[in-house]
Simulated scan of single mutants.
Amino acid sequence: MNAPESEEPPLLRRAVCPGSFDPVTNGHLDIIARASRLYDVVHVAVMINKSKQGLFTVDERIDLLREVTAEYGNVEVESFHGLLVDFCKDRGIPAIVKGLRAVSDFDYELQMAQMNNGLSGVETLFVPTNPTYSFLSSSLVKEVAAWGGDVSHLVPPAVLDALTERLARG
Rank of each mutant, 00 (worst) to 15 (best):
S120E: 09
M112Q: 12
S134T: 12
S134M: 12
D105T: 03
G149Q: 12
L125S: 06
A95F: 03
L125Y: 13
P131M: 13
L125K: 10
D150K: 09
D107P: 02
S152K: 14
S120T: 11
V103F: 04
M115Q: 04
L125M: 13
V97F: 08
V144P: 11
P157K: 14
E109K: 01
F126V: 13
G92N: 08
L125T: 10
V127M: 15
V151R: 09
P128N: 14
G99A: 08
Q111E: 13
L136P: 08
D107G: 02
G118V: 05
M112A: 05
V103K: 02
G121I: 08
V103D: 00
T129R: 03
N117Y: 15
E123L: 09
N117E: 13
Y108R: 01
Q114C: 07
V155L: 04
S152L: 02
A145P: 13
S120A: 15
A146C: 05
V97E: 07
S139V: 09
M115S: 04
G148A: 07
N130W: 08
Y133A: 04
F135E: 06
M115Y: 07
G92H: 06
S137R: 08
F106Y: 14
A145Y: 07
Q111N: 12
L136K: 03
N117Q: 12
G92F: 08
A113I: 01
L119I: 14
G121T: 10
F126N: 12
A102L: 00
E143D: 15
L140C: 10
M112D: 02
P128E: 11
A145L: 07
N130T: 11
V155D: 05
Q111Y: 04
V103P: 00
A113V: 01
T124D: 00
S134C: 10
V122M: 03
V127F: 15
K142A: 05
Q114T: 09
T132K: 15
Y108I: 01
Y133D: 06
R101Y: 04
N117F: 14
F135R: 05
A102E: 00
T124E: 01
V122A: 02
V122H: 03
Y108C: 00
I96N: 01
S134D: 04
N116V: 05
D105A: 02
L110Q: 07
L119Q: 06
A146D: 10
R101Q: 04
D105R: 05
H153G: 07
S138A: 14
L154F: 14
P157Y: 13
L140D: 05
V155G: 06
P131N: 14
S104H: 05
V127Q: 14
S139K: 10
P157L: 13
Q114N: 09
N117D: 04
V103S: 03
F135W: 14
S152Q: 12
P156H: 00
W147H: 15
V122C: 02
E123P: 03
T132F: 02
S104P: 05
V127C: 14
P94S: 05
E123V: 11
A102I: 01
N116R: 08
M115W: 04
Q114D: 02
S152Y: 01
A113W: 02
A95L: 06
